[in-house]
């Protein structure tokens, strides 16, 4: 009981302090955004967020793909969660998912493509692919034994692998890690984004499943 009495005042003080700190941050002078706008034509894409994610701060995205991979490895290494109860999905969900999954895949492709110069990009497209995968898993679909081994793992590391390969290749050619030469920047970004989309979608769906696919059958 003693601890409780102090909790609320402390949290209120934290709120006031943080609020004051946030409100008193000085307005930024035109620094970073202006630099970005000035260098946009080097970026290869015209959507500033995609340019930042895949080009100017490519390291962030590279490491983030690593985080996703490590999280999935964590989930798998804890493995052995029971599968969901195999309940039949019901007619409506079954038909809906058959209609919806192709649409989701097309929309994901569209978002990936349009991400170069409009809101969209690898993460959104990957999330949609992941949602399609979750829908399939909910309907009782499971990945076949033939594909649950190496092909699935290749798909999962594809994003990180493509990123690292592109980075290393550019390190050898250009002398800088992840420094895209402007003439081919948009093509490189599209390739890396496509790989990242597939990986993100597969990883998210695999996380939803929980256990390592194929293990439950043993």
């Amino acid at each position: 009981m003693d601890r409780n009495r102090w909790l609320l005042p402390l949290l209120l003080m934290l709120f006031v302090g943080l609020g004051y700190a946030v409100l008193s941050i000085p307005e930024p002078v035109e620094g970073l955004p202006k630099m970005l706008v000035d260098n946009m034509e080097l970026g290869g894409v015209s959507n500033p967020v995609t340019a930042v994610l895949l080009n100017f701060r490519g390291y962030d995205t590279l490491l983030e793909m690593g985080v996703l991979l490590v999280a999935l490895l964590g989930v798998w290494s804890l493995g052995g969660m029971p599968d969901y109860h195999e309940s039949s999905p019901g007619l409506v969900l079954d038909i809906m998912s058959r209609q919806l999954v192709p649409v989701l895949i097309i929309v994901a492709g569209y978002l990936l493509w349009v991400g170069a110069d409009a809101p969209g990009g690898a993460f959104q497209a990957g999330a949609l692919l992941g949602a399609a995968g979750v829908l399939l898993l909910l309907c009782g679909w499971r990945i076949g034994n033939k594909c649950s081994g190496l092909p699935l793992r290749i798909l999962i590391v594809l994003g990180l692998g493509m990123f690292v390969m592109a980075g290393t290749g550019l390190l050898l050619i250009e002398g800088e890690f992840l420094q895209y030469p402007p003439p081919v920047a948009s093509e490189l970004i599209l390739i890396i984004e496509a790989a990242a989309t597939l990986s993100i979608g597969t990883t998210l769906a695999a996380m939803f499943l929980g256990s390592r696919p194929g293990e439950a059958d043993k």
Partner: peptide, 24 residues
């Protein structure tokens, strides 16, 4: 001036990281 895209990119990264952390 335009909103700064760098925090936007960081937040998108953060959302994906937080969903994977949640799953774990």
């Amino acid at each position: 001036i335009l909103p700064d895209p760098v925090p936007h990119a960081m937040v998108i990264t953060g959302i994906v990281v937080s969903v994977s952390a949640t799953a774990l």
